[in-house]
C-alpha cells in the first residue's frame, strides 16, 4: 500500500490506476484519489473535529457528524463534555485504543476519494462494533474500490476478491467460497480461526 501511494519510489510500468502508470499521475492527485486508513491510529493533539476532517475546510458539521456515526464513535464523542470540539490530551482526555481507531476510521466516511484502503483498522474493535462498522464500510464502498487488509476472516469474507500473500508472493486469489474449495492456504487459515471458535462452542 505504501507503494500504491508512492510513499516509496515505484519502478515505471509496475503499478497502474485506471490503466495509467502511477508514476505519471501527479503525487497530489494520486494521494487525493486514495483514502488510506493506516493502522497506527495517529491523532494530532487538537480537537476531534480537526482530527476527523484533517484540517481541510469545506466540511459541514452535519457531514462530520454523519461520518462519526458511520464509524460508530458518535455516541462516545457525544458523551464527552465538549463533544466533537474536545481537544485530545487536554484535561486528561484519554481515548481508548478502540475509540482512537474509530475516530481514524471516520476520516474514510468524510473523504470523497474513490479508492479506500483499510489497513488492519478494525483490530481494536470488539466483534459487534466491528461488524457494524464493516456494514457501513460496505455501504460506503458500493461504488468505490475498497481494499481491506486483515488477518481476520470476518473482515474480508464478503470481499469480491481475496488475495492471499505469503512471504511477499501471491499464493491464492478468489472469493471466500472459491478459496475455501481450493483447500489451500486460505482454507487452512479459515480452519484455524473457526476451529478456535468451534472448539469453544462445544
Amino acid at each position: 500500500m505504501n507503494l500504491l501511494l508512492r510513499l516509496y519510489p515505484v519502478p515505471k510500468g509496475k503499478i497502474f490506476i485506471d490503466g495509467q502508470d502511477i508514476n505519471s499521475i501527479p503525487l497530489k492527485d494520486l494521494r487525493d484519489s486514495i483514502c488510506y486508513i493506516t493502522q497506527d491510529n495517529f491523532l494530532f493533539s487538537t480537537s476531534l473535529r480537526e482530527n476527523v476532517k484533517l484540517f481541510k475546510d469545506g466540511y459541514e458539521d452535519k457531514e462530520i457528524k454523519e461520518s462519526t456515526k458511520n464509524a460508530m464513535v458518535y455516541d462516545d464523542i457525544e458523551k464527552m463534555k465538549n463533544g466533537i470540539d474536545t481537544i485530545i490530551g487536554e484535561d486528561g482526555t484519554n481515548l481508548s485504543g478502540g475509540q482512537k481507531q474509530r475516530v481514524v476510521i471516520s476520516r474514510a466516511f468524510l473523504n470523497k476519494s474513490n479508492i479506500l484502503i483499510f489497513d488492519d483498522t478494525f483490530s481494536a474493535l470488539d466483534n459487534r462494533t466491528e461488524q457494524l462498522v464493516l456494514n457501513n464500510v460496505k455501504e460506503l464502498a458500493k461504488n468505490k474500490t475498497c481494499i481491506i487488509i486483515s488477518n481476520r476472516i470476518s473482515d474480508i469474507k464478503d470481499a469480491d476478491k481475496i488475495i492471499v500473500l505469503d512471504g511477499g508472493n501471491i499464493v491464492q486469489e478468489g472469493t471466500h467460497n472459491t478459496l475455501l474449495k481450493q483447500e489451500g492456504k486460505y482454507y487452512e487459515f479459515y480452519k484455524q480461526q473457526s476451529a478456535k471458535s468451534e472448539m469453544a462452542l462445544n
Partner: peptide
C-alpha cells in the same frame, strides 16, 4: 514534533499545504 512524527499521515491525506 507532532508533524514530523505524523509525516506519513500528512502525506497520505495530502495535508502538507494545511500543515
Amino acid at each position: 514534533a507532532e508533524s514530523i512524527y505524523g509525516s506519513k499521515l500528512i502525506k497520505i491525506f495530502n495535508i502538507q499545504k494545511e500543515k
